[in-house]
Amino acid sequence: MPMKIAIASGKGGTGKTTIAANLAHLFSQQGRKVTYLDCDVEAPNGHIFLKPQLTEHSPATTLIPQIDLGRCIHCGKCGRICQFNALLCLPEKVVTFPEMCHACGACLLVCPAEAITEIPREIGSIDQGMAGSIIFARGLLNIGEVMSPPLIRALKSKAEEGEVTIVDAPPGTSCPVIESIRDCDYVVLVTEPTPFGLNDLELAVEVVRALDLSFGVVVNRAGLNDQPMLDFCTEQNILVLAQLPDDRRVAEAYSRGQLICEALPDFKARFFSLMAAMETAILGRQIKSSERSNP
């Protein structure tokens, strides 16, 4: 059964991409067809470690309203319905703010004069290619752009999924993260044993639980002061998939753009046990849900 695994975190810089790239590489080495999706579109950096040959470049767009002032009757309905302040209705004109628009289409629906049409607006681009046998795709949001979910959506629908699809999610707990992880079979929350790491993990756990997603935690840079983090996971009945020790050699390999599992054989073993723990959890969930549908 194909697996779609999101690597997410609350806090930034905990090691999402490091884990995601290493997992993609090791799953691929097992002979499985792997897709790696870099959904961290504001700062995609998975390519540094997977070193793909990017062969396809395409623009990603979102829809914005275009007002035909010849037809507009200046009723103000579009401005009132818009929840994002993307339309300003003045007595004799309508001003649009494309960067505020979420492309919900409500303005189109309420316009009684059929004065609104939707036109595409470029917000970023999608690059695709191969990293060895891994299907690699990444989104890149244009500078100054804030509307990343439509780009993430386009990226996810464009790339061909593998037996294993690794979704490298952006940090945080807001819309871009939700867009990245919502349809995944499993979420790996990468955290670090610091007060910030724990605080943001708590928020991330709330998000995945609200989305009813199966998940586990990887404690990266373990060995600093892990107990509060582990206590939280025990209290909340959260599976700790792996504790990757804080190790200068990891930082050195990372800074050279190397995959940790290749540079450090002892870490390769740790990644294998992480993969095994993850697959057991995913399989358990799949069995449970099939029992529920076929009692």
Partner: peptide, 11 residues
């Protein structure tokens, strides 16, 4: 407002 406060106030 999360965003667009200026537009709203202008309205």
């Amino acid at each position: 407002a999360a965003r667009g406060a200026g537009i709203q106030a202008a309205q």
